[in-house]
Simulated scan of single mutants.
Amino acid sequence: MASSPRNTLRALCIIITIFLLLAGLAVLIVWLIYRPHKPQFTVVGAAIYDLNTTCPPFISTSMQFTLVTRNPNRRVSIMYDKLTAYVSYRNQALTPSLALPPLYHATKSTVALSPVLGGAGVPVSVEVSNGLVMDEAYGVVALSVVLLGRLRWKAGAIKTLRYGVYVKCDVWVGLKKGFVGQVPLLGSPKCKVDI
């Protein structure tokens, strides 16, 4: 007894549907097992070696921030490419961008970064220059350490595509005019990480 084309088509549709459901279930299980979490960043130290606001509209600085980054994933490592850092004040850059070396972040590990940021004069607005002078006279300066780059997650031999990463760490430092060296952190909440 020959089967009709309608029954053959129906059986084919059932087979394709079952295959797609099983493939979707496999992808869901893999995602639940290897689901990558964002890295966590915190600023734990700051030093200011130079902050020259005497030549407006240019500011020259030399600052060093120690950032601790933690990979919370148990099965997924993180690889950072083209990571750059700079310091901003009132959403305006105070230092030129500094390219950091590529970073491999193993699972459940913590890595410290201590880039020295600064150098040549950076043009800033009059409001930023005046605000920085006033805050320095007051003794408290709100700065932001910003990291930009690309990252990939790696689980075994599987690597994801590159994703853009933006990290912004808002910190309050105690700073008096003429002081050079390690400065106290008056406030350093966890950094904001966008991927």
Rank of each mutant, 00 (worst) to 15 (best):
S97H: 09
S62R: 15
Q64N: 10
V68H: 09
Q92L: 04
P102S: 11
S60A: 10
L67A: 15
L67E: 14
D81A: 10
A99S: 14
R70L: 13
L103M: 11
S62Y: 03
T69R: 02
T95C: 07
T107A: 08
S97R: 13
R90G: 01
S62P: 01
Y89T: 06
I48A: 08
L83H: 12
G45K: 09
K82D: 14
C55Y: 15
S109N: 01
A47L: 04
A106P: 11
P72R: 05
Y49F: 13
S88P: 08
Q92E: 15
T61G: 15
R74T: 13
T54A: 13
L51H: 04
Y86S: 14
V68C: 02
H105N: 01
T107Y: 05
V87T: 14
R74K: 14
A47F: 04
P96D: 13
S97C: 08
V76H: 04
P72A: 05
L51T: 07
L103T: 13
K82I: 08
L100D: 08
T107E: 12
K82V: 11
T54Q: 13
S97P: 03
I78L: 10
T95Y: 02
N71L: 02
G45V: 03
D50I: 10
T61A: 15
N91L: 05
T53C: 09
V43S: 03
D81H: 12
Y49E: 10
A99D: 14
P96T: 12
T84V: 13
A47T: 03
V44K: 02
C55F: 15
V87P: 05
I78C: 08
L98G: 03
R74W: 08
S77P: 04
L98S: 14
V44W: 00
L98T: 15
M63W: 03
T110W: 04
L94C: 10
H105M: 11
T69G: 07
T53V: 14
L103F: 07
I59K: 05
H105T: 02
Y89C: 09
T95N: 05
F41M: 07
R90P: 03
L51K: 03
T66R: 10
S62A: 12
T69W: 05
T69N: 02
S77T: 04
R70C: 10
N91Q: 12
L100N: 07
P72W: 01
R90C: 00
Y80C: 06
D81T: 10
V87H: 06
Q92H: 04
F58K: 13
F58Y: 14
S60F: 00
T53H: 00
L103N: 01
P57C: 01
S62W: 12
T61D: 12
S88G: 12
N73D: 09
